Simulated assay, not measured.
Amino acid sequence: MSTEGTIPFTVDGETYHTWYKLFGDLKTCTKRPVVFVHGGPGMSHHYLLPNQYFYHQAGIPVILYDQIGGGASSHRPDAPTEFWVPELFMDELDNLTKALGIDDDFGLFGQSWGGMLAAHYAASRTPKGLRRLIIANSPASVALNTQGTDALLSKFPDEYITMMRKHEAEGTVDSDEYQDGAMLFAKKHTCTVDPWPLDLLKAFEIFKKDMTVCRAMLGPYEFQTTGNLKDWDITGILHNVACPTLLISAPLDQIQEVAVLPFFQKIPKVKWVELQDSTHLAQYEEPEKYFKVILDFLENTAPVS
């Protein structure tokens, strides 16, 4: 069973709405619900839909939602750049768990930007009800992420790198040549399934209709961050993450090992799994292993060390 709804979310006296989709029944289910936090910033829940597997297979309630500014949640294309900061999305996540009545006992899964947000939330707010944290394909700092991206780019032909950097320097990133170049990189380091799955294509289709959040937080460029997240770094507070944590990455992920390593080094109770046959979206590229690793973590009551 699944249900959909919206939850009011008030920011500076103005009310927005967070759209969510729930697989399962929070009132009758005895298993801990898990909230899935999508990437972007500014994407939607659609590409995370394969994760309903955990409800259908194991009876774990699965909550997907669209962060404000994306998908079916409230949009704010006229908001100033400074509106779009991690604290806004942490407030929204707090609001969501409280409204659904799960803030005293829940799991949290974040992928890409969603993992950055989930880790930041766990480390800075240390929510008492957070029992399991999964950080998938996410960096611990933007500077380290850029370092990893540069290493991946160095393996591309010189003319490709020159072309992409030229467009970024000249501000012509909306050109077909640059966008085609970005897709070339994505097909190698974001998702290697060909053609891309329909849920992933739908997420990108919706995302491109309103890129306000992405442009404000990341900037317009594929390989450098100039937005509000340019100095984002939570490596200094990761020791505050109190709950058992699972890291998921891959050798050819667009998020490279150098950017994932601080999670492993500094979170007290952590397990790190590298999926060898996927890149950034293992739910499509390596689903059997992906689902098994996560399900084992969610259902294992033994300590993680």
Rank of each mutant, 00 (worst) to 15 (best):
Ile7Leu: 06
Thr10Pro: 03
Val11Ile: 14
Thr15Ile: 05
Lys21Cys: 04
Lys21Asp: 00
Leu22Glu: 08
Phe23Gly: 00
Lys27His: 13
Cys29Leu: 07
Pro33Met: 12
Val34Ala: 02
Gly42Asn: 04
His45Thr: 01
Tyr47Leu: 07
Leu49Lys: 03
Gln52Glu: 15
Val62Asn: 04
Asp66Arg: 10
Asp66Gly: 11
Gly70His: 09
Ser73Asn: 08
Pro80Leu: 04
Pro80Thr: 07
Glu82Val: 01
Val85Leu: 06
Pro86His: 05
Glu87Gly: 11
Thr97Ile: 13
Asp103Glu: 15
Leu108Met: 08
Gln111Ser: 14
Gly114Trp: 05
Gly115Trp: 00
Gly115Ala: 04
Ala119Ile: 01
Ala119Arg: 00
His120Asp: 14
Ser124Thr: 15
Ser124Asp: 10
Pro127Arg: 12
Arg131Gly: 01
Arg131Pro: 00
Arg132Lys: 15
Ile135Asp: 02
Asn137Gly: 15
Ala140Pro: 04
Leu144Tyr: 01
Thr146Ser: 06
Gly148Asp: 12
Leu152Met: 13
Ser154Leu: 11
Asp158Ala: 15
Glu168Asp: 09
Gly171Leu: 08
Glu177Asp: 14
Glu177Met: 10
Tyr178Pro: 02
Met183Pro: 01
Leu184Trp: 09
Lys187Arg: 15
Val193Gly: 06
Asp194Leu: 12
Asp194Thr: 15
Leu198Ser: 13
Asp199Asn: 12
Leu200Ile: 05
Glu205His: 13
Lys209Pro: 03
Val213Ile: 07
Gly219Glu: 08
Glu222Asn: 10
Gln224Thr: 15
Thr226Met: 05
Leu229Arg: 02
Thr235Pro: 00
Leu238Val: 02
Cys243Lys: 03
Pro244Ala: 08
Thr245Met: 07
Thr245Ser: 11
Gln254Cys: 12
Gln256Trp: 08
Leu261Ile: 12
Phe263Gln: 05
Phe264Pro: 00
Ile267Phe: 03
Pro268Ala: 02
Asp277Phe: 12
Ser278Asp: 04
Thr279Cys: 11
Thr279Lys: 00
Ala282Cys: 12
Pro287Cys: 11
Phe291Tyr: 13
Lys292His: 13
Glu299Asn: 14
Asn300Lys: 01
Asn300Thr: 07
